[in-house]
């Protein structure tokens, strides 16, 4: 962080952004689940964010999304010669997305987001109480 120490709003706020990136990645994966393409190369593969903690001083740390990686899960090959996109062998390739795993991921991301909102709310009300002290 540039000069000034990390406040509780930085910690929770950045964690919320990270969880939002995760939620977005899940949304893209879900949207592409069941997508069919003619070649294995073109088939959609699930994407996942990689989280890393950013430490300010000992014990005080927030999260950032280091990068978003494409998983190397194999697209499902299906024999469907009547499909308009089928290749010369009559195969189509389905996106490599595990929808139930994505569903779990979505729920977890939203719960973690809620946790951080709660932390922020608590911190805010304590700060306001402190500001009003003696009035």
């Amino acid at each position: 962080m540039a000069g000034n120490p990390m406040s509780i709003f930085d910690i929770s706020g950045r964690a919320m952004s990270a969880q939002l990136v995760r939620l977005n990645a899940t949304a893209s994966n879900m949207a592409n689940a069941g997508n069919v393409t003619g070649t294995e190369k073109e088939a959609y593969r699930a994407i996942k964010p990689v989280f890393r903690s950013v430490t300010d001083k000992p014990g005080v740390a927030t999260v950032k999304v280091e990068n978003v990686v494409t998983t190397d899960a194999k697209p499902v090959k299906r024999y469907d010669p009547n499909h308009p996109l089928a290749d010369k062998d009559g195969n189509v390739f389905e996106a490599a997305v595990d929808s139930s795993a994505e569903m779990v991921e979505m729920l977890e991301a939203s719960r973690m987001y809620q946790n951080n909102v709660q932390v922020m709310q608590t911190a805010k009300s304590l700060m306001l109480q402190t500001v009003r002290m003696g009035k």
């Binding site: 990390m6 406040s7 509780i8 910690i11 929770s12 950045r14 964690a15 969880q19 995760r22 989280f51 890393r52 903690s53 000992p58 014990g59 005080v60 740390a61 927030t62 999260v63 977890e108 973690m112 946790n115 951080n116 932390v119 911190a123 304590l126 402190t130």
Partner: peptide, 29 residues
């Protein structure tokens, strides 16, 4: 006490923020 409580609040917020970071070690005082 108030100063320490506020610092500890930061510490616990960091732990909660890093709940899904692989390899993160939670700290407390």
């Amino acid at each position: 006490a108030l100063e320490l409580r506020s610092q500890r609040l930061n510490l616990l917020a960091s732990n909660i923020a890093n709940a899904s970071t692989p390899g993160y070690k939670a700290r407390d005082i």
